[in-house]
Design a protein around this nucleic acid. Structure first.
Lengths: 233, 233
DNA sequence: CAGTGGTCTAGACCACCAG
DNA sequence: TGGTGGTCTAGACCACTGG
């Protein structure tokens, strides 16, 4: 296929550092001429490499080689130490509460939290930023029976602190991992332009009973960051 | 944008179960007529929804609604219990060694394993199948100093058993998660047709020393399976 | 065979960016 | 202003599927 030829050609030039990291590659029209193909064919090849994180485009400027070598590590299990670790890298970390409301559990949510349908659930939307760039978008659900309305602020801003202050013991966690191409809403929150995959995590936290304590869905923008979990045994 | 209109239209019809799960949607030409657009525009909309796992296409047949509701759970931390659990679901699980060879560590690998460049490393490629469908593709690297050539078979087929038989204690694991759109080679191993994201995991296992015991890269085909980790505290 | 999706063409007009 | 990428058109030919 012509598209694949062009993809391979660009990949080889990146590998040979013929196209250098961060630098501009040939324009679409130049590639059209080189391969004697139409622009749509070239664009499909570039689209492929954008999605695979080898290239990025800037309207009016050109297409550039992406540098994935220097992604900054974000440690998933150091929620408390997040700020300190950020300082080590000279980064500014902040968490923004986008929304905090009480909703009625729909079918899916009631099954997840093992509660009856339409029962009241806190829904907290957060954005975690590093150097003012949105990196993590998170939605937490916790049944109203576990959290009164005047505690919501404490819980939202310092979840792990809240848990230890209440002497709640986490017994089990169920994590589900998936790579997805996010829809427009999530792309907007994470300021993503292209149809590039993000890493999604769904976590159910159990404190002993059969009913989960909370359910959290997290989307990680992999553009400039990598997400690492350290397990000590 | 016209493409987005068509995307939204199809999504709404799926949501309303107007297009039912597993069933065929309108053909590309019908959609062209409905929206008075060219076929390339319709195809771009469908492409979007294929990548986001809402639709799949079959050449000569049509475009169908994907059912993601009944994905089968695969438990990541139950490597040993994998076969038993598979039985519970009436599934046949098997592991196939695709390749086992000794290579010289390149720059990246030597940095990962904290060994000198060009030192010898076992490289084991595995495919895990469920009901004869490839689901997990894995490449393990372990320095030759940790594993002699006559042990390689034992290690490859039953890693966790090998580790406990040798009385090796795992002290730490470093896991990196990422969602990617795989290249042709990996798509081929996992029998994937479309540019759909997979979930990728990189794991460094430490047995106490600074040097990692092994480095494993795993690709998970999310098409019909979901991948879950259970953490007991 | 007719209908489907898979690939590709040779244009067009637009918005954006730099000089 | 000229060059870049972003969107879209109205065709074309092909390979695959089912009846």
């Amino acid at each position: 296929m012509k598209v694949d030829e062009i993809v391979e050609y660009i990949l080889k030039r990146i590998e040979k550092e013929d196209y250098k990291k961060g630098e501009k590659i040939e324009s679409e029209n130049q590639l059209c001429q080189r391969f004697s193909v139409s622009r749509m064919t070239v664009r499909k090849a570039i689209e492929n490499l954008v999605q695979r994180n080898y290239l990025y485009r800037e309207h009016g400027k050109g297409t550039f080689v992406k540098d994935n070598a220097n992604k900054i590590s974000v440690f998933l299990n150091e929620i408390i130490g997040f700020n300190e670790r950020a300082k080590k890298y000279n980064l500014k970390a902040e968490t923004k509460i986008l929304n905090s409301k009480i909703i009625k559990a729909d079918k899916n949510l009631s099954e997840r939290l093992k509660i009856t349908k339409n029962s009241m659930v806190h829904c907290i939307e957060k954005l975690r930023l590093i150097n003012s760039e949105p990196v993590v978008y998170e939605i937490s659900y916790i049944s109203k029976e576990y959290l009164s309305s005047n505690e919501i602020n404490y819980f939202s801003t310092a979840k792990s602190e809240y848990i230890s202050s209440k002497n709640i013991k986490i017994k089990k966690m169920e994590k589900e991992f998936i790579g997805i191409i996010p829809d427009y809403r999530i792309r907007k929150k994470l300021k993503m332009k292209d149809l590039v995959p993000v890493f999604k995590q769904e976590v159910l936290t159990f404190t002993g009973t059969e009913k989960p304590f909370d359910f959290t869905v997290t989307f990680y923008n992999q553009d400039r960051y990598k997400f690492i979990e350290i397990i000590q045994k």
